[in-house]
Each structure stands twice: as structure tokens, then as C-alpha cells.
Amino acid sequence: MLKFIIKRLLWMIPSLFAVSFLAFVLIQLPPGDFVTTYIATLASSNEVVDQNTAAALRERFGLDQSMLVQYLKWIWGILSRGDFGISFEWQQPVSGLIWERMALTLVLALASLIATWAIALPIGVYSAVKKYSIGDYAFTAFTFFGLSIPSFLLALVLMYIAAVEFGADVGGLFSPEFETAPWSIAKMLDLLSRLWLPVAILAVSSTASLIRVMRANMLDELPKPYVTTARAKGLSEFRLLIKYPLRIALNPFISTIAWLLPNLISGSVVVAIVLNLPTAAPLLLQALMAQDMYLAGAFVLLICALTLIGSLISDILLALVDPRIRLE
């Protein structure tokens, strides 16, 4: 068991390096660099930047070095002092810009994850046990609908309904008065009162897929001989259901974190942009557009690292609950 966890942890190291390199390459892909974009912006307002200034700028940001050197400098900065570099656009350290937004991203993803599980688990079990009942058909219809609607469209439709029917503005995670206020109980409550909408939007499609997973798992387990054994012992249907097939169907369910988290974070990017949430996504989009390399890189890196940690947690959880893995 301990060996398994250590092996899994060690495996994280090359994965994280791969992710960081990927993030760096992705950000380096666009032709030109920030200085090019910067000069273009200045040029559009009739300011002319001479070659020397451009070169000086490049030197200051280290853009004149080879990509590998830039990468190594970048990754060393992150590892040694948590320094993600400087945002060209904001003219301040990236680390000052990202953490609060990353924290909100995480809060949003975790809240959606919990909501998804809480809804999908009982429905999936119900659908499997009452296979082909009216309830099962209704939930199946919901799952197909949930899988078919893009989350941004759902966000737009809900925004439309809120605006037209209730005259409410549901964008953002905070009311205007709290937006720049320091953290307080009131701000937390405000956050909670506004968090439900993006959570609900994000949870729809993941709930839909998870219901299908859980239903299929349960349908696999229900006809197994050990269920018949439990029945032959005289256990009531409900008790045996909870103790045996549900318990076993839960194992593959736990391993869904590994792909659910990347999905939720992916989905949250689009939804956050539509609803203008103060999470990582809108800033990432802006940074990408402006080729603000270190800022965008930090976001891509952290988001990818988050999902890697998610799959690590799910593997460890799985090993904890499944003796077949634990005692391998």
C-alpha cells in the first residue's frame, strides 16, 4: 500500500515536468513575442519604437535567449522562490495576480465536483435498480440532454432568463460592493449566494455523464453471484444493495475524479468567461490574446497541475477503498 502511494507520488514528478514543459511550449508557439505585440499596440497609437528600445525590452524580459534557457530560468524561479515571472501586460509579478483567481477556480471546481457526486450517485443507483421504470427513462432523458448542451449555452440561457424574467444580473461571483473588499464573513456569504449558478451549470453535463457511469456500474454488479449469495443469506433488498453492489460499484466511480476534474476545469473556463467570474479563465484568455507569456504559462501550468493532483488523489482513494489494489 505504502509502496503503491510512493510509486504513484514519484510518478508525479515526471508528469509535472512534462506539464510545465508543455505549458511553456504552448505559450511560446505564437509567432513573435510580447514585444512584437507591444510595439504593434504602440504603433497603432502612432508611437514609434526604435530597434534599440525593442532590443532593450527583449533583454530585460530575457526574450533574446534560447527557449530552453528561458524554460529552465522560468522553472527554476518557480521551484526556488515561487516566482512565476513578470506579467508584461500588468507590469507586476505573475504570482501576485494568480493565486486568488486560482483559489476561486479550485473552489468552483470542488463545489461542482461535490454537487455532481451528490446528485449523480443516488440517481445512478435508482436508475439501475429501477431499470426501465418511468423514473429511469426521465433521468436518462435528462442525461442525454445534459450531455448535449454546451455549458456556455446553458449559462447564456440562464443569464437570459434571469435578466428577462427576474431582472437580475447573475454574472460574477461577488456583488459589486464586495468585489474589491477584503475577505470577510459577509463576503463569504455573498460568494456562496452567487456560487450556486455556475456550480449548477457546470454540474449539469458532468452529472449527466456520471449518472450514466454509475448506472452502468450498478447494472454490471447487480447480476453478480455475490449479490445472490447475500440474498440467500436473508438480507433485505435495501441492505444488501447498500452493502454489496453499491459498495463495489463505487470503486470505478471514485476513479472518475481522474477525468471529471479536468472536465470540470475545462468547462469552468468557458462558463467563467461567459458569466465573467473572477476565476483564472478570463484572465487566461486575456493573457493568451495579448501573448502575456508568463501569466498565461502560469495559469496553464497550474490548471494542468491541478488535474494531475486530482488523478493522484483518485488513485490513492481507490487504493484505500479497494482491497484488491491495496493488497496487490
Partner: peptide, 21 residues
């Protein structure tokens, strides 16, 4: 394969798409 599957797709697509002229 496991690695690619554990990546969040949209941020990566965004980064790739942003690289297109």
C-alpha cells in the same frame, strides 16, 4: 495516454488556438 487524458482540454486548446495567426 493517461497523461494526455488527465489534461484539461479547453485551456490547452485555447493556448494552441491563440497561437494561430
Amino acid at each position: 495516454i493517461d497523461f494526455v487524458l488527465s489534461l484539461p482540454t479547453i485551456p490547452i486548446w485555447l493556448a494552441l488556438a491563440a497561437a494561430l495567426p
